[in-house]
Amino acid sequence: MSTMELPSEGRCRCGQVRLKISAKPMVTMACHCTGCQRMTGGPYSLSAAIPTEGFEVTEGEPVIGGLHGDIIHHYFCPHCMSWLFTRLEGVDSFVNVRATMLNDISWYAPFIETWTSEKLPWVTTPARHSYAALPAMEDYEGLIKEYMGQVS
């Protein structure tokens, strides 16, 4: 696995919304939940938890899509409807960026996979840790420390 070059830029499919990442991910993930399957049109979504201070929208105005009125806010390009990133209400420490929106993802591999209880039976990932749903809150600190230790 190669290392993420910083800063890293990305965009939606049409280019109207652009992103800039200036901090290394805290952890990378593949989510197999049926919601992610439906929003991506694929077997899972790929994301990188980026420290909030290392994430910025540099062009365009993303809109909330996917779930509405929930504590999970999925942001999309208003024109091409590409799913760009997710923010959790009340969690200000990171932004969950869709890794495939970055211009260079040659460095990317999911470190954890979640919602394997809903994954398609033929799907595999190279994730080091797998969870039937989500990791317990107390597990995240160790997972982040382990991930950051391998990419330093």
Results as ranks from 00 to 15, higher is better:
residue 43 P to Q: 13
residue 43 P to M: 13
residue 44 Y to L: 15
residue 45 S to V: 12
residue 45 S to K: 08
residue 46 L to N: 12
residue 47 S to P: 01
residue 47 S to W: 02
residue 47 S to D: 00
residue 48 A to E: 05
residue 49 A to E: 02
residue 49 A to S: 12
residue 50 I to S: 01
residue 52 T to K: 10
residue 53 E to P: 00
residue 53 E to G: 05
residue 53 E to A: 14
residue 54 G to Q: 02
residue 55 F to L: 06
residue 55 F to H: 04
residue 55 F to Q: 04
residue 55 F to S: 01
residue 55 F to K: 02
residue 56 E to K: 10
residue 57 V to L: 06
residue 57 V to R: 03
residue 58 T to M: 03
residue 58 T to V: 15
residue 58 T to R: 04
residue 58 T to H: 00
residue 59 E to V: 01
residue 60 G to A: 07
residue 60 G to R: 04
residue 60 G to P: 08
residue 60 G to E: 05
residue 61 E to W: 04
residue 62 P to D: 03
residue 62 P to M: 06
residue 65 G to D: 00
residue 65 G to W: 05
residue 65 G to K: 05
residue 65 G to Q: 02
residue 66 G to M: 07
residue 66 G to W: 08
residue 66 G to P: 09
residue 67 L to D: 12
residue 67 L to R: 13
residue 68 H to N: 07
residue 68 H to T: 10
residue 69 G to V: 10
residue 69 G to F: 09
residue 70 D to P: 00
residue 70 D to S: 15
residue 71 I to P: 04
residue 71 I to R: 07
residue 72 I to Y: 01
residue 72 I to T: 14
residue 72 I to L: 15
residue 72 I to D: 04
residue 72 I to G: 05
residue 73 H to F: 01
residue 74 H to E: 12
residue 75 Y to I: 00
residue 75 Y to W: 15
residue 76 F to G: 04
residue 76 F to D: 00
residue 77 C to I: 05
residue 77 C to W: 05
residue 77 C to V: 03
residue 78 P to G: 09
residue 79 H to D: 11
residue 79 H to N: 14
residue 80 C to G: 08
residue 82 S to N: 07
residue 82 S to C: 12
residue 86 T to C: 14
residue 86 T to K: 00
residue 87 R to Q: 09
residue 87 R to P: 01
residue 88 L to M: 14
residue 89 E to L: 03
residue 89 E to G: 04
residue 89 E to S: 12
residue 89 E to M: 05
residue 90 G to W: 04
residue 90 G to Q: 11
residue 91 V to A: 11
residue 91 V to D: 14
residue 91 V to N: 15
residue 93 S to Y: 08
residue 93 S to N: 08
residue 93 S to K: 11
residue 94 F to N: 01
residue 94 F to L: 11
residue 94 F to I: 07
residue 95 V to N: 03
residue 96 N to W: 02
residue 96 N to A: 13
residue 96 N to Y: 00
residue 97 V to P: 03
residue 97 V to R: 06
residue 97 V to M: 06
residue 98 R to F: 01
residue 100 T to I: 13
residue 101 M to I: 07
residue 102 L to I: 11
residue 102 L to T: 08
residue 103 N to V: 10
residue 103 N to F: 09
residue 105 I to N: 13
residue 106 S to Y: 09
residue 107 W to V: 04
residue 107 W to T: 08
residue 107 W to C: 09
residue 108 Y to N: 12
residue 109 A to E: 15
residue 109 A to P: 00
residue 110 P to V: 08
residue 110 P to L: 10
residue 110 P to F: 08
residue 110 P to G: 09
residue 111 F to Q: 09
residue 111 F to N: 08
residue 111 F to I: 03
residue 112 I to N: 02
residue 112 I to K: 03
residue 113 E to R: 09
residue 113 E to I: 07
residue 113 E to N: 14
residue 113 E to Y: 10
residue 114 T to P: 03
residue 114 T to C: 14
residue 114 T to W: 02
residue 115 W to T: 00
residue 115 W to G: 02
residue 117 S to E: 13
residue 117 S to R: 12
residue 118 E to C: 08
residue 118 E to V: 10
residue 119 K to C: 08
residue 120 L to T: 09
residue 121 P to M: 07
residue 122 W to L: 10
residue 122 W to V: 09
residue 122 W to G: 08
residue 123 V to F: 00
residue 123 V to Q: 06
residue 123 V to L: 13
